[in-house]
Amino acid sequence: MYPKSNIPWIVQSLKFFMKTNKLTQSKLSELTKVDQGQISRILAGQCSGRGDAIIKLCKYAHIDAHNPSPDPIGSLLLMETIKEVWDGTESGARAIVDMLRAARRMPH
């Protein structure tokens, strides 16, 4: 079980996972063996916080349903700044990641 208060974050994380991996509900259903109708209800936020379906989906998507973390997608400032500085290449992405990780180790 996980707190019901985590459901909105879980739903947002699942939607992001599906979008970035170009997965439809049908394809996710096929991959996880979770009924497509159940996936639809979960993505609509119509879930109780109990049951195996949401746990299976979270495990597949590597989402920790018990410990939600802030979603950087929710920060317009962060996303706009990344768009501004990223050159669109994989090496550019790695450089940004390296800088962010280095900044995390700096004293605040």
Rank of each mutant, 00 (worst) to 15 (best):
L78A: 14
E80G: 05
R101E: 05
I10N: 01
V11P: 02
L31G: 02
D64P: 00
R104Y: 02
V85Y: 12
H62D: 10
S40Q: 15
K15L: 15
A61E: 03
M1Y: 13
S48L: 09
L77H: 09
S48W: 08
K4L: 14
G37S: 11
S48V: 06
T81M: 12
G51R: 10
M18G: 03
W9G: 07
G37I: 03
T20C: 15
S26V: 15
I96N: 01
L78N: 08
M106H: 08
L76R: 14
K22L: 02
V11C: 03
E90H: 09
M99K: 06
M18P: 04
I82V: 08
I7K: 01
K56W: 03
A95T: 10
V97K: 07
V11K: 14
K15C: 14
L76F: 10
L76P: 01
H108T: 05
N21C: 15
W86R: 07
I82L: 09
E80K: 11
C47L: 12
D71R: 14
I82A: 04
A103T: 03
R50I: 12
P8L: 05
L57D: 12
I73C: 05
I7D: 01
I54P: 01
I82F: 06
R105E: 07
H66L: 07
N21M: 15
T32V: 11
K83G: 08
T81L: 13
D98Y: 03
P70C: 04
I63M: 07
W86L: 04
I73A: 09
Y60L: 09
S75F: 04
S5E: 15
K27A: 11
I54W: 03
G88N: 06
I73N: 08
D64K: 00
L28E: 00
P3G: 01
A53Y: 06
G49C: 10
G45Y: 06
Q38D: 05
I96Y: 00
Q25V: 15
I63N: 05
D71K: 05
P107G: 05
A95S: 10
T89S: 10
L14C: 14
W9K: 14
R105N: 02
A93T: 02
D35E: 13
K27C: 10
L28P: 02
V11D: 05
G88R: 08
K56Q: 09
F17T: 01
K19Q: 15
G37Y: 00
A93Q: 08
R41N: 11
S69W: 04
R50F: 10
K22H: 11
L78K: 11
G51D: 08
R94W: 03
Q36M: 14
A44S: 12
T24H: 13
F17I: 01
H66S: 09
G37V: 11
W86D: 06
P70K: 06
D98L: 04
M79T: 12
P107H: 05
C47S: 13
A103L: 07
P8K: 07
A95G: 02
D35F: 13
I10D: 00
W9I: 15
Q25A: 15
K33P: 02
H62N: 13
A65D: 00
E84S: 11
G37N: 10
K15D: 07
H62L: 09
K22G: 08
M99G: 03
D87A: 02
I82M: 08
V97G: 02
D35V: 04
K22V: 13
M106W: 04
K22S: 10
Q46F: 13
W86A: 06
T81E: 13
S40D: 13
G49M: 14
G37R: 09
Q46T: 07
T20N: 15
I39E: 11
